[in-house]
Design a protein around this nucleic acid. Sequence first.
DNA 1: GACTGATATGTCATTCGTGACATATCATTA
DNA 2: TAATGATATGTCACGAATGACATATCAGTC
Lengths: 108, 108
Amino acid sequence: MKSDKRKRLEAAGWKVGSTRQFLGLSNEESAYIEMKLALARGLRKQRESQNLTQTDLARRIGSSQSRVAKMESADPTVSLDLLVQSLLSLGTSPQDVARLLRPVSRAA
Amino acid sequence: MKSDKRKRLEAAGWKVGSTRQFLGLSNEESAYIEMKLALARGLRKQRESQNLTQTDLARRIGSSQSRVAKMESADPTVSLDLLVQSLLSLGTSPQDVARLLRPVSRAA
DNA sequence: GACTGATATGTCATTCGTGACATATCATTA
DNA sequence: TAATGATATGTCACGAATGACATATCAGTC
C-alpha cells in the first residue's frame, strides 16, 4: 500500500501532474499526491489568511511547528487525517475541504 | 488530537449531525466524522457498482476483508488515507472524492 | 556584521493504524 | 436443517505517523 518511490520527491514541490510519467507514478499514486498537495496549499493559505504563525497553529492543534511545516510541504510522513483535521481546526468546513480538491471549478 | 469519546458511536451508524449536541461533540469532531461517513458510503457504493465483494476489494488494495468492512462502517480505527486510497483504487478521481464530501450540490 | 522571528530539515521514542486471523452474524439455497 | 457465501466484530504484532526536540536556513531590522 505504501509505494515509497516518491518519498522525497513530492516534498520538493514538483509539479506532479507534469512529471508523472517521468517518475513512473501510477494514476492512483499521483492522484493521491495531488490531493495532499491541494490540502497542503489550502492549509497554508488558511493559516496565513488568519495571520497565524506555524507555531500558533501548532499550539492550536496540539502539535509542533516542525510538523506544521511538514504538513504545508506535503511531506510523505504526514497523513491526510492530520491535514484535514488541521484544516477543520482553522474553521474550514468539509465543503471547503472538498473545494480544495477541485481546483477546476465548474465554470458556467 | 484524538478525542475518543465517540469511539463506538460513529461505527454504529448514528446520524451524527442530528445527535451532535447530545453526544457533546465539537464542530470539528462531527465534521471529521461526517467526512469519514461520506467516504465510507461512497466506497461501498463504488464497490457494489462494480460488483465486487469486500474480499475482492481487499485483494485489490492489498488489505483484508475485515478491514474493508471496517472502512465501510467508518470504524474509528480506519484513516482517511486508507479510505481515500481505496476509493482511488476503484477508479474514483480526486474530483469524485470531493463530490462525496459535498452531498449538497449547489442548486441553481 | 549581529540579532530576532519565522520557517525548514533531520532524528527519535511513543502512539496509533494496519493486515491478518479467528469467529460471529446474516441471507440464500438446497 | 445444513451448507455456502458475504459481511461484521474482536484481537494482536508489526510498521508507519506523530509530537518533540535540535538545528539549519532565511528574511528583516538594527
